[in-house]
Each structure stands twice: as structure tokens, then as C-alpha cells.
Design a protein around this nucleic acid. Structure first.
Lengths: 186, 186
DNA sequence: ACCTGAACACCGTTCAAGT
DNA sequence: ACCTGAACACCGTTCAAGT
């Protein structure tokens, strides 16, 4: 894509520019297609410049995943606050919608590349994101935990199988309808 | 690891040797740590040698994923044939056990790297693997489809969240017990 | 037919040097 | 403090040449 050239020597906001460009490349080419040199080129900066802001490619990917979890948290919290009625099903719909709307980012958030090395920042972001989810249905009691896990695993599995193309919607089928059908199932 | 050197010029079985070594490296280092040059080195062969048997690194990963789906299919079919009683819960347990026992391979089977380009061989292997699963619960009828999807998404989501470390077993908790608790949940 | 050796374009990363 | 330019070790991949 077009590089935003004629930037001054001191960019001023390179870190954020890198992150925004990275999110676009990620959405278009996936995590495998997101190279540090490509990114530097796309932003119109030298190959070494990103290293002032990210220690490594993995650190950049981690930062992207963290912002993914933050956006996810925001979407979840809005729902949790909005209506007391049927929060669980509303969150399920929001969960699926977020994942499908941000497919590559969502996959990155759960990528094994990042899990392999210790990344406490990522862990914290994930815990914050799923904290709300864990609370719904009363995550404290033993039965509440099972109910929450059951709902969570269903929606997460649905998302993953949809993203992988293992499950396809039938012609004319609505995603929200499928979610509630699956959620109401014994 | 130790290279099996003093092999003859014509290896004879290089393709299978490569696949076996690749499975070991995959289990140890994950897909990201599996390079073609590393693999060639580990087997004691020149960097270009693997290209006689795999067109690219992606083709090698695809071959690994296909054998993963085949092993998975075998495990599922054994169960489907064994006992008519409680097939669904038996398959759920086998599903989770396979995934946890072959974590890196299982992830590769669902990796986005491979999904991105057309890989009909992979698609066929996946369809064969999940065919059995789709049939259980009578996948033909509309309600049967929902029941099967509900069971499948729950167990797949559980596996993914366990592999990602988002869900942890509580002290002394049995994985099979958790599966059946989650599966019995409304 | 199968493998080697050398090469190509590329990558992530480092580091001295510039502003 | 932030960025450039040039370099390093490494990849995946190709191709002529060997057996």
C-alpha cells in the first residue's frame, strides 16, 4: 500500500503508526504475512527503526494481541453494563461477532507463537478480557463455574470452527439464530 | 538431535524419514520452529534434498496436518465401532485426549497458515476426520445437526481453551469428569 | 530418479554513525 | 532520544551438476 512518506526525521508518533499499519496488514495477510521489514517499508521508515519501539517481531505481535484483548474487553464490558436481561446470550453474540469481524486479530490473540515464550503482558490482557465472562453465571460457586465454562466453550468452539471453515452456515441461516440454538441445547 | 549420518546417496525412504523427524521437531518446538533447513540438517541431508519430496515448507506442513487428521480419524472410528453405548461421551473424551496428547499437531491441523492457500488435500482429510463426528447424533435431521454442533463446539472449545491455558483444571480435577459435566450442562 | 553445492533474494536483528 | 545505513547470520527456494 502507499507509504506515508515525507515524514520528518523524528517521526513523533512512530509507535502508534506502526501499530495501526500492522493491524491493517494483519487483517489483510494474517500474522504470517506481517514482517518487520515490510511494516517498516509500508510506513516509510528504515528496517531498524521499529526496534526503537519493539524489541522483536514477537513483541510487536504481542502488542497487537494485547490491543485485541483490550478491544474485546471493551465490547464485553459494554454489554455487561447495558442490560441485566439475558446478558449471557448477548455476550455470546458479541463474542462471535467480534471474532468474525476481527478474524486474524482474534487468531493472533490465541496464537501458539505467542504462548510459547512467557509473555505476562499478554496473560494479563487475556485475564482482564475473560474476567467479565468468568463472572457471568456466578463464577464463584462450583456449579456456576461449570455453567460458565459450558457456555464459554460452546461459543469459543463455534467461533474457531467457523473461522477454520469446518462449520458452514446453511443457506439463509442466521448466525445469531445458530448461536442461541446451540446455547439452548442440552 | 543426532543426525542419522552415513546414509547412502540414495536414501530410499527420505520422504518418510523427513515426516517422522518433522513430527518430533513439531512436538518439541511447534510449527514456527520447524524449518526446512533444520529438518534437512537433522536428517543429515542437503538443504535442497527435501524439495524432491515436498514442493515447499507449506506442503510439508500440510502433509503433517494430513497425517494428523488421519490419526484422528483412526481414533474416532475405533470408538464409533467399539460400543453403541454412550458413543457421544466416549468420542468427546477421545477428542480431548487426542488434542492434549498431540498439542502441536492438533494446532497445526487448524492452523491459519495452511487455511490461507487452497489445500484441497487438507480439506479432504479434515472432512473425513469430522465425518464420523457429524454422523453421531444423526446429523441429517435439523435437530440432529444442532445437537451434533452443540456437542462438537463444546468439546472443541474446551480443547482450544485448555491448549491456550485460558482454562486450567482445578487441583485434583479430572479432565474426563470436567468433560461430562460440561456436556451434561444445559 | 534422487541428491549435492552453490547461489539468489529475502528476513530478523545488531550496531556504529548521523540529527 | 530517535532514526539511518550497512552489516551479520540465517531462511526458503532454485538450478546446474553429480551419482
Amino acid at each position: 500500500m502507499l507509504a506515508l512518506l515525507n515524514a520528518p526525521y523524528h517521526h513523533g508518533d512512530l509507535r502508534n503508526v506502526l501499530l495501526e499499519a500492522a493491524l491493517i496488514i494483519l487483517a489483510r495477510d494474517g500474522a504470517a504475512g506481517l514482517g518487520l521489514r515490510d511494516l517498516a517499508r509500508a510506513v516509510g521508515v528504515s528496517p531498524a527503526a521499529p526496534y526503537r519501539h519493539f524489541n522483536s517481531r514477537a513483541a510487536l505481535l504481542e502488542a497487537l494481541a494485547v490491543t485485541g484483548f483490550q478491544r474485546f474487553t471493551t465490547a464485553m464490558n459494554e454489554l455487561a453494563a447495558s442490560g441485566p436481561v439475558d446478558r449471557l446470550s448477548a455476550m455470546s453474540r458479541a463474542y462471535v461477532r467480534f471474532a468474525l469481524d476481527n478474524a486474524a486479530l482474534f487468531r493472533l490473540m490465541f496464537s501458539s507463537e505467542l504462548k510459547r515464550d512467557n509473555r505476562p503482558g499478554l496473560r494479563r490482557a487475556a485475564d482482564a478480557a475473560f474476567g467479565t465472562l468468568r463472572q457471568v453465571n456466578g463464577g464463584d460457586t462450583a456449579t456456576g463455574r461449570i455453567a460458565a465454562l459450558s457456555a464459554w466453550t460452546r461459543v469459543h468452539g463455534l467461533v474457531m470452527l467457523l473461522l477454520d471453515g469446518q462449520i458452514a452456515l446453511q443457506p439463509g441461516e442466521d448466525i445469531d439464530a445458530l448461536i442461541s440454538q446451540i446455547s439452548d441445547q442440552h
